[in-house]
């Protein structure tokens, strides 16, 4: 165990990847808290699937595998997808959830067509593209890790700088508009930050599971606190732990993919929070419920006694 931890730290490549995944988890946890509070958690899933055609187009144009190029492709495709979702749910009678499902699968279908087209045309270095589906952090080179770390730091900085504004539009957009904040602009900024988080996360966690990086740490954090700064800190911490354990455990064996391990670590943290968090956790709730019941039974009994005594005195 100790040997393994030391070997993780002594190999410079692994060390960078570990650091990159930790920071990524931190950044996505923080941004995810806002999307969670705005009840837009599944937007992350849509953005991730919609990124596939963007990544493929970026590959076809650039003919190289480069994380920054893929990021731009994923970002543009994600923005297009979000515009489609809001257009469909605003202009027709189709509900937002169905609109998300339609856009998600349509974009992913087009992405699949492009991906298989690239693979069948056999342009050499395409093999890395399918790593995008399930994520393999070990496949990253140092330049990719730098990009990933830069993006995560950007996310955290943006969340800190715009903290007050994001807080307002998450809890009470009507009030935010009333005091003259540019709500539309802020919402778009948050959306772009979410898209950036998703696009960066795809490299480590993969298209299908990257949504969990946004949702699960934030939902777990919600059980521990009622205050937004503390929630952001908890979500960032949970995300960082999940990212780090995903990257660390996947070095154990050749066939262990990073994405699923990261997601399962986050789910474990969520389950612990759901059950044992003080105050909002299920165990605490059950204890309170029992205490309340016992308390009520006692007062009801004494009350009945007093009533009986009062009755006999008369």
């Amino acid at each position: 165990m100790l040997d393994w931890l030391i070997s993780l730290w002594s190999d410079p490549n692994t060390r960078w990847i570990l650091l990159g995944c930790t920071l990524l988890g931190l950044g996505s946890g923080v941004i995810g808290s806002f999307t969670f509070l705005r009840r837009e958690s599944l937007l992350g899933d849509t953005l991730a699937h919609a990124a596939l055609p963007g990544v493929c187009i970026a590959f076809m144009l650039g003919e190289v595998k480069s994380v920054s190029l893929f990021l731009i492709g994923a970002l543009l495709a994600g923005i297009a997808a979000v515009l489609c979702v809001s257009a469909i749910s605003r202009w027709t009678r189709i509900k937002p959830d169905a609109a998300m499902g339609i856009v998600l699968t349509f974009f992913f279908g087009i992405g699949t067509v492009m991906l298989t087209h690239i693979q069948h045309s056999g342009s050499g270095s395409q093999s890395g593209l399918d790593k995008y589906l399930f994520g393999q952090a070990a496949a990253m080179v140092t330049g990719d890790v730098y990009t990933l770390m830069g993006v995560s730091v950007l996310l955290i900085l943006a969340a800190m700088l715009l903290f007050k504004e994001f807080k307002l539009i998450s809890f009470d957009p009507g009030f935010a508009r009333g005091i003259g904040l540019p709500v539309g602009l802020l919402e778009h900024t948050m959306l772009i930050l979410t898209t950036v988080a998703v696009a960066a996360g795809i490299q480590a966690v993969g298209v299908v599971l990257v949504a969990a990086l946004l949702i699960t740490p934030a939902a777990a954090a919600r059980y521990w606190t009622d205050r937004l700064p503390a929630m952001l800190a908890f979500a960032g911490l949970f995300g960082a732990i999940s990212g780090a354990s995903g990257a660390a455990i996947s070095t154990l064996g050749e066939g262990i993919p990073t994405g699923p391990v990261t997601v399962l670590a986050a789910t474990l943290l969520f389950a612990v929070s759901l059950l044992f968090a003080p105050g909002r956790g299920l165990a605490a709730k059950a204890l309170r419920h029992r205490a309340l019941k016992a308390d009520y039974a006692r007062t009801a009994n004494t009350g009945a006694l007093e009533a009986a005594e009062g009755g006999s005195r008369k």
């Binding site: 969670f36 009840r39 837009e40 958690s41 599944l42 992350g44 899933d45 399930f134 299908v208 599971l209 949504a211 969990a212 949702i215 699960t216 934030a218 939902a219 064996g253 066939g255 262990i256 993919p257 994405g259 699923p260 391990v261 997601v263 399962l264 789910t267 969520f270």
Partner: peptide, 24 residues
């Protein structure tokens, strides 16, 4: 828990178990 988050958490967790089982 709000419905969108519960959907997201459950399906990503189960899908992750599936991918892990297959790759192991």
């Amino acid at each position: 828990l709000q419905s969108d988050a519960s959907i997201g958490i459950v399906f990503t967790a189960l899908f992750a178990v599936g991918v892990l089982l297959i790759s192991l």
